[in-house]
Design a protein around this nucleic acid. Structure first.
Length: 718
DNA sequence: AAGTCACTCAACCGCAGAAGT
DNA sequence: AACTTCTGCGGTTGAGTGACT
């Protein structure tokens, strides 16, 4: 048995590699062939040097060539097809099925012929069966031969891969020979580590042969008991993999192709209600899998985030808000049948907050303010949650678990490291104070910063779900709960100093919904969502909405993009503080005024901000505008658009006060500095004074600000 | 033409709850 | 009750592909 071409006779694998395979692979510029050739070379070296007894090479050039067996009359014929041309050769073959049985493979010797086609030299043009010979060969001898293994599934030969090297016993196409099937499989039921009872389980893409086996198995035995599939069918796949493959690709009535508009709409609505409950959502979409939905949603998030669009269309937000409100009245905020409240007292689907944003025009995207740790963290939180309209993803139980594990570290931090809120503690619950996320050490190490940052403001869930952020796990855990795409704009390591407390919505929750807890230990049970909260949120929405109107009137001509940027940074702070009952600071400032001062002071350092980029849709894939995002709108003057925000109002207020600004700035700066405490005051003063720190810190050059205009425009619309 | 980037899809992983022993 | 196994879920990753520069 030998491999031949027209001009040369190749008798060893090395010759095959050096004379055919490598040149071929290089000529063809096909990545898989390069890899194939290299693997072959390695196989040869390894086997010939005695490092291993046998080896196999796996590649997949199925797309290029197909091997099919068709039945004609009493004979079974194996055809070799080229993807480009008619079958160039065929092998008469009898009783292959009878001999090998279904799901078996047939060893075949591949004959190569020299190049006739310009771009595909040495195409496999014929396959010759020589099973007797192959059976008689030792592994070592086999490695000197060039042959392929072809699996036989049903009445069709499926060439899973056309590698030229395989041993008798070591197979990697996920299909076992009969003796292997019967002998060695013991699954650990866990897919972990890739082995089950010493059997190496295959990973990676499924072949059609494997699919066929799985389908066949399920037909016979039904779904379930997936670990048994491997044991009884010869598939080298773990049960989980089988289940996944079946559920996502093989089971009947699966709908393929892109989502229809109706489906997309439904997904949006479902997600607004359920959050990342892909399986539950899939139950509402016949023929669709959770994986599909999940992928779709993640893509959608990414797209819309880039486009500066909210995830949810306004009508969905409103609907969710209405639903949640109605339900809250009916059910008194207890767990009820409604999906939103079903999320329990710890979670309010973020769509509610999104609705608030929609109604109040709280800017959905907030510029990142590097070097302002708290603000930065606020930005992260806002960016990931409010600004991106991210839904809740964390399980309540998980939160509770994490709360107990993570919270203690914050208790002390709140008291010891945050003078400002230490003073608050008399008036505000610990939880509320914690909600401001002030309890973090100033950590110069960027890596630590990141952890802290996320630990304190770990993104969306804590913000929206009413649990103090400290109940969220540190970075790693948080990351699990947030789609990765939420992070691109949360550049880490650009903060480190202290600034105004970030009045998160969560803090609003804390103020609104419950009396101050008496101890940190209560944190796990904090933030029960109830109708009161929902009502409060609604009220807040109304309040903010009216504030917005006022703001747009007041500031329509005053805000520059930079102003908008700076003001928008804190607008949420202010509006929410205002709605928090205005806890008084020890210095006699209300939280709002304090924050306002802080903003005003900090605003002075924003003079050099680059103007907000005007976002263009060309940057991103086209995204449906959810009825509100239109090119006309987008092209509007960003100043006008942004001016509708409460944050712009804030900015305008600041601008209006500009005449007396210098004097006030000094006062405010001092006030804030005093509140911040000695450790932070100098930094804050520097910041406020526009020193190098501040100018760097408050720069918006590379932040999420880029996303502002579109969202602002969107949010302006009713 | 080559490189880069974004997108899509399929699959894997770890975790957690349910079920079974 | 404790332990193991099975199943499902959600997050993440990597390969493939096409558009763009």
């Amino acid at each position: 048995m030998e491999i031949t071409n027209k001009n040369q006779r190749i008798q060893t694998p090395l010759q095959f590699i050096t004379k055919i395979l490598l040149p071929f692979s290089l000529l063809s510029c096909r990545q898989e062939l390069h890899a194939f050739a290299l693997q072959w070379l390695l196989v040869f070296i390894a086997t010939s040097s005695g490092l291993i007894d046998s080896c196999s090479v796996e590649t997949d050039i199925k797309a290029e060539k197909g091997v099919k067996m068709s039945k004609g009359g009493s004979q079974t014929e194996l055809e070799v097809e080229s993807s480009k041309a008619e079958p160039k050769g065929s092998i008469s073959k009898e009783t292959v099925v009878a001999e090998y049985g279904e799901r078996e493979e047939v060893p075949l010797v591949v004959e190569l012929e020299d190049e006739d086609e310009e771009d595909r030299p040495n195409e496999v043009v014929s396959i010759e069966e020589d099973e007797d010979l192959l059976k008689s060969l030792s592994n070592e001898e086999l490695n000197k031969k060039c042959f392929g293994w072809f699996s036989l599934v049903g009445r069709e030969f499926v060439c899973d891969y056309k590698e030229m090297s395989h041993t008798k016993n070591e197979r990697e196409d996920g299909i076992l020979s009969k003796d292997q099937t019967e002998s060695s499989l013991i699954d650990d039921g866990n897919c972990g580590g890739g082995t089950g009872g010493g059997v190496v389980l295959k990973k990676g893409p499924w072949t059609s042969a494997e699919d066929a086996i799985l389908i066949d198995y399920v037909k016979k035995h039904g779904e379930g008991n997936w670990n048994a599939v491997q044991k009884h069918s010869g598939l080298f796949r773990c049960g989980k993999s089988c289940r996944l493959r079946w559920a996502n690709h093989l089971r009947p009535n699966l709908k393929k192709g892109a989502f229809t508009q109706e489906e997309e709409q439904l997904i949006i609505e479902l997600h607004a209600k359920m959050g990342n409950k892909w399986a539950r959502m899939a139950a509402h979409l016949p023929g669709r899998t959770d994986n599909e939905i999940k992928n779709y949603w993640n893509t959608r998030i990414k797209r819309r985030q880039r486009a500066g669009l909210p995830l949810y269309p306004p009508e969905v937000c409103l609907q969710a808000l209405q639903d949640s409100h109605g339900t809250s009245v009916v059910n008194g905020g207890d767990k009820g049948p409604h999906d939103i409240l079903q999320n329990n007292s710890y979670e309010i689907p973020d769509v509610i907050f999104d609705s608030l944003k929609t109604s109040q025009n709280v800017l959905p995207y907030v510029p990142e303010l590097p070097d302002i740790s708290t603000s930065s963290m606020l930005m992260k939180g806002l960016g990931s949650q409010y600004c991106s309209f991210m839904p809740p993803t964390i399980h309540r139980q998980k939160r509770l678990r994490e709360a107990t594990a993570f919270f203690p570290g914050y208790t002390g931090a709140v008291k010891n490291e945050c003078p400002l809120f230490e003073q608050f503690q008399g008036d505000i619950s610990d939880k509320a104070a914690q909600s401001f996320g002030l309890s973090f050490p100033i950590e110069p190490d960027p890596a630590t910063k990141n952890s802290l940052q996320f630990g304190v403001f770990p993104g969306s869930h804590n913000l929206s779900n009413g649990n103090f952020s400290a109940s969220e796990p540190p970075l790693e855990a948080v990351k699990l709960e947030l789609p990765s795409l939420q992070y691109p704009e949360t550049e880490l390591g650009n903060w480190g100093t202290f600034s105004c407390p970030p009045p998160l919505l969560e803090s609003v929750d804390a103020f609104i919904q419950s009396p101050p807890p008496t101890s940190i230990a209560e944190s796990d049970s904090l933030s029960p969502r109830n109708s009161g909260l929902l009502d409060a949120l609604l009220h807040e929405a109304k309040t903010l909405s009216s504030a917005k109107n006022h703001a747009s009137e007041k500031s329509s001509n005053s805000a520059t993009p930079g102003d908008i940027a700076e003001s928008s940074t804190f607008n949420i702070c202010e509006t929410e503080w205002e709605n928090c009952g205005e806890p008084l600071s020890p210095m006699g400032h209300s939280a709002t005024s304090l924050l306002s001062e802080c903003i005003s002071a900090s605003g002075s350092t924003l003079d050099e901000q680059p103007p907000a980029e005007t976002f263009t849709e060309s940057h991103v894939k086209s995204e449906p505008a959810d009825h509100v995002f239109t090119p006309e709108i987008q092209n509007e003057d960003p100043t006008r658009l942004d001016s509708c925000h409460p944050d712009t109002l804030l900015a305008s207020n600041w601008l209006e006060q500009d005449s007396g600004y210098d004097r006030e700035q000094t006062i405010m700066t001092d006030s804030i500095a005093a509140l911040l405490g000695a450790d932070l005051s100098s930094e804050y003063k520097n910041m406020a004074a526009g020193t190098s720190i501040s100018s760097q810190a408050w720069g918006l050059g590379s932040c999420a600000w880029n996303n502002m205009p579109a969202v602002c425009q969107m949010s302006e619309l009713p």
